[in-house]
Design a protein around this nucleic acid. Sequence first.
DNA 1: CACTATGGTCAACGGTGTTGGCATAAGCTG
DNA 2: CAGCTTATGCCAACACCGTTGACCATAGTG
Lengths: 230, 230
Amino acid sequence: MPKPVVPEQSRRRRRPTRSGTVLSEQLIVETALRMLREHGSTGLTARRLGLALDCDPSTLYRYFRGMDELTLAIGDTLMGQALRGWSPSGDWRADLRTIGVRIHRAYVAHPQAAVLTTSRVTGRANELAADEAVLGVLRTAGFGVREAVTVYHAFIDQTLAFAALDAASLALPNAALHSDEEMWHSTYRRLPAATHPHLAEAAPLLATEMVTSAYPAALELLLEGVAARL
Amino acid sequence: MPKPVVPEQSRRRRRPTRSGTVLSEQLIVETALRMLREHGSTGLTARRLGLALDCDPSTLYRYFRGMDELTLAIGDTLMGQALRGWSPSGDWRADLRTIGVRIHRAYVAHPQAAVLTTSRVTGRANELAADEAVLGVLRTAGFGVREAVTVYHAFIDQTLAFAALDAASLALPNAALHSDEEMWHSTYRRLPAATHPHLAEAAPLLATEMVTSAYPAALELLLEGVAARL
DNA sequence: CACTATGGTCAACGGTGTTGGCATAAGCTG
DNA sequence: CAGCTTATGCCAACACCGTTGACCATAGTG
């Protein structure tokens, strides 16, 4: 039987580890984020995290049921950073744009962490706040409940999906990343116009376009689609 | 030093394993796809694959440099299935919709495999063909090169990003999947209306909406946005 | 038939998440 | 301040994982 995990609020005894540091959910998540940044998305392991915190790996199971629950907590921390200090302006289009860009930016700022968490529903406080914010903007804009839910789903999933995609390419090991960029400049540029006329024609533009995120453009198109429905 | 891998074409000796089966790259990829479907995205391991093929795990290194190269081969197989037999109809909107749905469907049909491969840019024949097709549709529809490139980028990344996101949630291990669904039915439904009025109001709709893919709706919104620019 | 080198096998290494049992000290009670 | 309880950190172990190097049986070549 797994050990019971005490919720962070009702944690009263803060016994320090052998080396003197006092653990907490927040400290563990922050350390995990740092490790992800330094060692890549596969670099977060219970043993390494224990090493970084100077505690036994099994101690982590007093705070999280397993590595999976830890990644959920990491994801919620990112979401919390995304919307910290935001408040609605009343202009639905500007508000949705801001929310989307903020979430996308927060995740892409921690690509290795984003790769692990973007596709998960955490159900934790910060995620709930974000969902509530988006739904509020849409309802205030005049959408009915049913349509607001549809647009909300498309909007939030598109944001998270692009965040995951962009994060994945940012999180690639340096060697693979370099070879990817090389490909846009070599493979695509020397394409025979006979077999791929449109690619050949667009090659110069593609070389500069494809190394940036398509999220802003995709977001703008989606907002235009939403506006067309109002 | 790793063992050299003999290309599939120049393979001459087909020595059978102890149990009598003769290995090949194709047989290994097919078996891997079946294992992924049956055991989940974490269920593909060298040892288990060896067990299924009735050969020693280390034998796989005669065919692939490692598990990573094997996953790339799997991804290539998926991309080949996506656009097989497709040809443009002349209606740009219908064509983009079809291309998007086909790619999305091909990946989501093998979610456990897709989750391992979606973030990789291969630059191989099938990927080039898809890019050429999308650009061709947009140019024929009347977009200039520059705008076609922008829309193409948003469209193709939206498709891949949603494919990755949807595949990831479909491919979650049973335990995690169950906890994600639990989240929608328990946490979200008992939310205090005081702190999250819009979520509480939409909870019943969300419970049914969030378990399906938002890609069709997001694709429609994007297409409406594109149409508004024509 | 003899030779060669392909490719299957075996054993081992260092890594992983996770668990049950144990010991110690933090904070409550008096 | 003393004593108790139990939360919580630590330890050892388990069953996996990918990968490698050495070994050797044998299919195909000449």
